[in-house]
Nucleic acid binder design. Structure first.
Ligand SMILES: [Mn+2]
Ligand SMILES: [Mn+2]
Length: 304
DNA sequence: GGAAGAG
DNA sequence: CTCTTCCAACGCGGT
DNA sequence: ACCGCG
C-alpha cells in the first residue's frame, strides 16, 4: 500500500480481529486510512501511547509508550521526561501513513496526551471521565449536561465524545498558560461544586463502596504524562465501537449509549454530519477568568 | 508484532 | 531453531 | 515505603 509517499506492507490482512463482527486486520487498517482526515487534527503533535492487540480482541493486549527501534525513521517521535527519572521516546502521529502503520502494528486504540510536544507541561485540554455506576447511561448523560452548564457559567467551552466503552468524555479546551497541577486542581474543584449541587446523583468519592449508586466525577486523567483514548480510536470490544465526537444535542437523546458508533456505522455518520469538534481549537477561553468565577461559586456554595 | 533471552 | 516473556505510569488515599 | 485504585 502506498500512502503519503510511504510504501507500507500490510501483514496478515485476513487475520480475524473482531470475531463476532467478522472484522479483519485488513478492515482495521482500511478504517484508519479512511478516518485519518477527521482524526488527525485531534492527535497531531501529541505524545501517543499505543494500546496494541496483536491477536485481536481475543488476546490480552498491552500498552506501549516507548517507540520500538524497528519503527521506520519517517515516524515522528518526541522524548518526554518521566516524573520519577528516566525518559520515554513517544510516537507522534502527524499523518495518515503513521496511523496506518500503527494499525498494522495492531495498535487500533491509540491514546494521546492532554498536552502537545511544543509545551508538554501545559495541557491544552481538561478531560472529565464519566462512567455509569452499573448500567445507567442516563446518569452519564445527566452528568455531562450539568458539567456543560457549569462550564457555561465559568465561561469555558465544552466538547463531548463517546468513549466507545462504558461512558462519555467531556473535554474543555485550555489556553496552555498553566501547568498540570493548576489545571488538575481546577478540574477537582469543578467536580466538587458539581457533586455538591447534585449530591443525590454525583460524587467525587473515590471509594467505590461509599458512592451509593452515584456517578463518580473522574478527574484523574488531568495529570502530566497521562493520556486518554483518542477520538476515532477503535475499542477492543466485540462490535468494534469507536470513541466518537458528538454534538451536545446528541447527549439529550435518551437512546444514546457509549457504543452507539462502531466501525460498521461510523462512515454513515461522518457522511451525514460534519465534524462536531471542528471549532475545538478556536474555542479556547480564559482560564484565569474561569478560575476566578469558580472561586466565587465555591465561596458561596461550598461554605468551607 | 516483534525483539531478546532461555533452552 | 522453538518457546516464552515483555511491551505504562500519575496522583491519591489507605495501610 | 508500598499497594490499589481510576
Ligand atoms: Mn471512562
Ligand atoms: Mn473512570
Amino acid at each position: 500500500m502506498k500512502i503519503g509517499g510511504h510504501k507500507l506492507e500490510i501483514t496478515h490482512e485476513d487475520k480475524i480481529f473482531f470475531s463476532k463482527a467478522k472484522i479483519t486486520k485488513g478492515d482495521v487498517v482500511d478504517y484508519f486510512r479512511r478516518v485519518a482526515n477527521v482524526m488527525l487534527p485531534h492527535v497531531r503533535g501529541r505524545p501517543l501511547a499505543m494500546r496494541r492487540h496483536p491477536d485481536g480482541i481475543k488476546g490480552e493486549g498491552f500498552f506501549q509508550k516507548e517507540m520500538p527501534d524497528y519503527f521506520p525513521r519517517w515516524i515522528q517521535h518526541v522524548t518526554t521526561p518521566r516524573k520519577e527519572g528516566g525518559k520515554v521516546d513517544n510516537v507522534v502521529c502527524n499523518n495518515a501513513a503513521t496511523l496506518v502503520y500503527l494499525a498494522n502494528q495492531a495498535c487500533f486504540t491509540p491514546h494521546v496526551w492532554l498536552s502537545r510536544r511544543d509545551k508538554l507541561d501545559c495541557p491544552d485540554q481538561l478531560i472529565f471521565d464519566l462512567d455509569p455506576p452499573g448500567k445507567k447511561f442516563a446518569l452519564v448523560r445527566f452528568a455531562a449536561k450539568t458539567l456543560h452548564d457549569l462550564f457555561d457559567e465559568l465561561g469555558l467551552c465544552t466538547f463531548v465524545k463517546t468513549t466507545g466503552s462504558r461512558g462519555l468524555h467531556v473535554i474543555v479546551p485550555l489556553d496552555r498558560r498553566h501547568d498540570f497541577d493548576t489545571a488538575r486542581t481546577f478540574s477537582q474543584d469543578v467536580a466538587c461544586v458539581l457533586a455538591h449541587r447534585h449530591s443525590k446523583r454525583l460524587t467525587v468519592e473515590p471509594r467505590k463502596n461509599k458512592r451509593r449508586g452515584r456517578l463518580y466525577l473522574d478527574t484523574a486523567r488531568n495529570s502530566y504524562a497521562q493520556h486518554a483514548v483518542a477520538p476515532y480510536a477503535v475499542r477492543a470490544i466485540e462490535g468494534a465501537p469507536i470513541a466518537t465526537p458528538l454534538r451536545w444535542d446528541e447527549v439529550s437523546d435518551s437512546k444514546l449509549y457509549a457504543q452507539r458508533f462502531t466501525m460498521k456505522n461510523i462512515f454513515q455518520r461522518l457522511s451525514r454530519t460534519s465534524d462536531p469538534w471542528k471549532s475545538l481549537r478556536r474555542s479556547v477561553r480564559s482560564f484565569k477568568a474561569a478560575r476566578k468565577r469558580l472561586d466565587a461559586i465555591m465561596k458561596k456554595e461550598l461554605k468551607k
